[in-house]
Each structure stands twice: as structure tokens, then as C-alpha cells.
């Protein structure tokens, strides 16, 4: 079936144009809100990953330092049980903390989902642009009549 070509706005009645313009304004508002929500979700996801990555890197550094300290203690103070035990405890503490970090946040989407959100964001932005453009076209026709 052939696609029907919509009537140009110039052929619409003023009340139809008014109604359509109001509809486009409301639609734009909803699209803007959706875009804002999605942007905030993506920002939160990115920050969460940044925090987890920084925590992991810092614990790895501390673990390495503790390991070196333990080697030094064993080499230079093999009879100092207090020092060796303390250093071992520190090492275990950092290892345990690092192991407890989630590889990815359990509440946040995986990277492919971030990409999907990005694609959805682009679609919403495109729709918003189209909607605003139509509202503007209708506004111009209405202004010409008044």
C-alpha cells in the first residue's frame, strides 16, 4: 500500500494547527525529560566505574607495598614476629578488600548496556530535534495567518 503524503500545514485549519503545536510542545517536554534522565543514568554509571577502578588500583598499590615490606621484614628482622605478623595482616587486609570489590557494579549495567543507552540517547535527541522543528513550522504558519 502506498504511503499517504500528509497534507501541508498551509492546508490545515487553524484549530488543528493549534492542537498539533500543543501536542508537539508536550512531546518535546517529555523527550527532554527522558534525555535528562538517561544522561544522569549514564553519568552515574561512568562515575561508579571510575570509583571502582580507582579503589581497585589503590588497593593493588597498597598490596604491593605490603608485600615488599614483608620481604624486607623477613630479610632484615626475621625474629621480629610482631612486625612480620602485622605486615602479613596488612597484606591480607588489602587482598581481602580488593577481592571484595565487584568486577562491575552489581546495580549498574554492563558496558554493552552503556552503548545501548548511548544509542537510545542519540535517538531521543534526533526525535526532539524533529519535534521542535515541526512545532516551529506550525508556529510560522500560524503567525502568517494572524
Amino acid at each position: 500500500m502506498a504511503k499517504r503524503t500528509p497534507k501541508p500545514f498551509e492546508e490545515w485549519s487553524t484549530s488543528d494547527l493549534d492542537g498539533f503545536r500543543a501536542e508537539m510542545v508536550v512531546k518535546s517536554h517529555h523527550l527532554q525529560k527522558s534525555i535528562q534522565t538517561l544522561e544522569q543514568k549514564m553519568e552515574a554509571y561512568t562515575m561508579n566505574r571510575r570509583l571502582l577502578d580507582a579503589a581497585r588500583a589503590s588497593l593493588k598499590t597498597l598490596e604491593q607495598c605490603a608485600l615488599e615490606s614483608l620481604d624486607l621484614a623477613r630479610e632484615h628482622a626475621p625474629d621480629n614476629d610482631v612486625l612480620i605478623t602485622y605486615t602479613k595482616q596488612q597484606l591480607e587486609r588489602y587482598r581481602h578488600a580488593r577481592a571484595s570489590l565487584p568486577t562491575v557494579s552489581t546495580r549498574q549495567p554492563e558496558k554493552p548496556e552503556l552503548l545501548a543507552m548511548g544509542a537510545e540517547l542519540e535517538t531521543l535527541r534526533y526525535k526532539l530535534k524533529q519535534t521542535r522543528q515541526r512545532a516551529e513550522e506550525v508556529h510560522e504558519v500560524l503567525q502568517g495567518r494572524r
Binding site: 553519568e43 552515574a44 561512568t46 571510575r50 580507582a54 579503589a55 588500583a57 589503590s58 588497593l59 597498597l62
Partner: peptide, 25 residues
């Protein structure tokens, strides 16, 4: 919220989250 983390970094005058975590641990 991301903005709150950014303000924390601004308070510390750094962007080095890793260094801040080291101090915290």
C-alpha cells in the same frame, strides 16, 4: 551523585581518586 564526587575532588584540589583511596585505606 557524580556531582558530589566532583565536589569532593574539588575540595581536595585533585582529580587523583586513586591517591585519595590510598589515604582512605
Amino acid at each position: 551523585k557524580p556531582i558530589v564526587v566532583e565536589r569532593l575532588l574539588a575540595l581536595e584540589e585533585t582529580q587523583d581518586l586513586e591517591a585519595l583511596f590510598i589515604q582512605a585505606y
